[in-house]
Amino acid sequence: MTKVLLSLHVLAAIIAVGPVTVAASMFPATLRRALGADHSDGDARTTLRTLHRICRVYAGVGIAVPLFGLATAGSLGVLGDTWLILSILLTATAAGVLALLILPAQDRALTAAAGPVAPSPAPSPPPGRLAMLTGVFNLLWATVTVLMIIRPGSTTGV
């Protein structure tokens, strides 16, 4: 059963986290194009909406990653291991960055890219700030991935 849970955990991570990291990383550059030339790039705005939708949908699907991870850790008996606790904290931080910073910033950016309709209460984030937040999100996931592979202090190998 452990192998099945581990397989589901890894597949969920690839299928859910991968698209979010790619779409979120593409968003700032596309935002720069959409904001340039007096909002004349309709293709860039369409791409922004698509990238944001990918981020939102796969963020929801991404909940499966820690669920399968916790089930796998329970079956392996490693729930108290330091590397796992640190991975859980980093995963929660990455989820927070996505849900509380990146997705709302993308929402505001979509409004700004639509053109000057009415002043919004929250200003659109500069593309550079959004790129930085996305880099932090991606770095957190990369760190979790490394921890999952090397498992410091693990007695199960490596």
Results as ranks from 00 to 15, higher is better:
Thr2Pro: 00
Val4Pro: 01
Leu5Arg: 05
Leu5His: 01
Leu5Glu: 02
Leu6Trp: 02
His9Val: 13
His9Ser: 14
Val10Thr: 14
Val10His: 05
Leu11Ser: 13
Leu11Tyr: 06
Leu11Ile: 14
Ala12Thr: 10
Ala12Cys: 08
Ala12Pro: 00
Ala13Arg: 06
Ala13Lys: 04
Ala13Pro: 00
Ile14Ser: 09
Ile14Arg: 11
Ile15Asn: 05
Ile15Val: 15
Ala16Pro: 00
Val17Ile: 15
Gly18Thr: 09
Gly18Pro: 07
Gly18Cys: 07
Gly18Glu: 07
Gly18Phe: 03
Gly18Asp: 05
Thr21Met: 14
Val22Ser: 01
Val22Cys: 00
Ala23Pro: 05
Ala23Leu: 04
Ala23Lys: 03
Ala24Ser: 13
Ala24Met: 03
Met26Trp: 13
Phe27Thr: 04
Pro28Lys: 04
Pro28Gln: 07
Pro28Ile: 02
Ala29Val: 02
Ala29Cys: 05
Ala29Phe: 12
Thr30Gln: 06
Thr30Ser: 08
Thr30Asn: 08
Thr30Lys: 06
Leu31Phe: 06
Arg32Val: 11
Arg32Gln: 13
Ala34Cys: 10
Ala34Ile: 08
Ala34Met: 10
Leu35Phe: 14
Ala37Asp: 14
Ala37Met: 03
Ala37Tyr: 06
Asp38Trp: 11
His39Gln: 10
His39Ala: 07
His39Asp: 11
Ser40Pro: 08
Ser40Ala: 14
Asp41Leu: 04
Asp41Pro: 05
Gly42Trp: 13
Gly42Asp: 15
Gly42Glu: 15
Asp43Ala: 15
Asp43Gln: 13
Asp43His: 11
Asp43Pro: 02
Asp43Phe: 03
Ala44Tyr: 13
Arg45Lys: 15
Thr46His: 14
Thr46Cys: 13
Thr46Ala: 15
Thr46Ser: 13
Leu48His: 04
Arg49Ile: 08
Arg49Asn: 12
Thr50Lys: 10
Leu51Ser: 04
Leu51Val: 03
Leu51Met: 05
Leu51Glu: 01
His52Met: 08
Arg53Cys: 15
Ile54Asn: 01
Cys55Trp: 00
Arg56Ser: 09
Arg56Val: 15
Val57Cys: 07
Val57Thr: 14
Ala59His: 02
Ala59Pro: 04
Ala59Gly: 10
Gly60Asn: 08
Val61Phe: 04
Val61Thr: 05
Gly62Ala: 08
Gly62Tyr: 01
Gly62Met: 01
Ile63Cys: 09
Ile63Asp: 00
Ile63Lys: 03
Val65Asn: 06
Val65His: 07
Val65Ser: 09
Pro66Thr: 12
Pro66Val: 13
Leu67Gly: 04
Leu67Arg: 03
Leu67Cys: 06
Leu67Ser: 05
Leu67Tyr: 01
Leu67Phe: 09
Gly69Asp: 10
Gly69Leu: 09
Leu70Tyr: 00
Leu70Lys: 00
Leu70Ser: 02
Ala71Tyr: 01
Ala71His: 00
Ala71Trp: 00
Ala71Thr: 02
Thr72Ile: 03
Thr72Ser: 15
Thr72Ala: 15
Ala73Trp: 00
Ala73Asn: 01
Gly74His: 02
Gly74Pro: 00
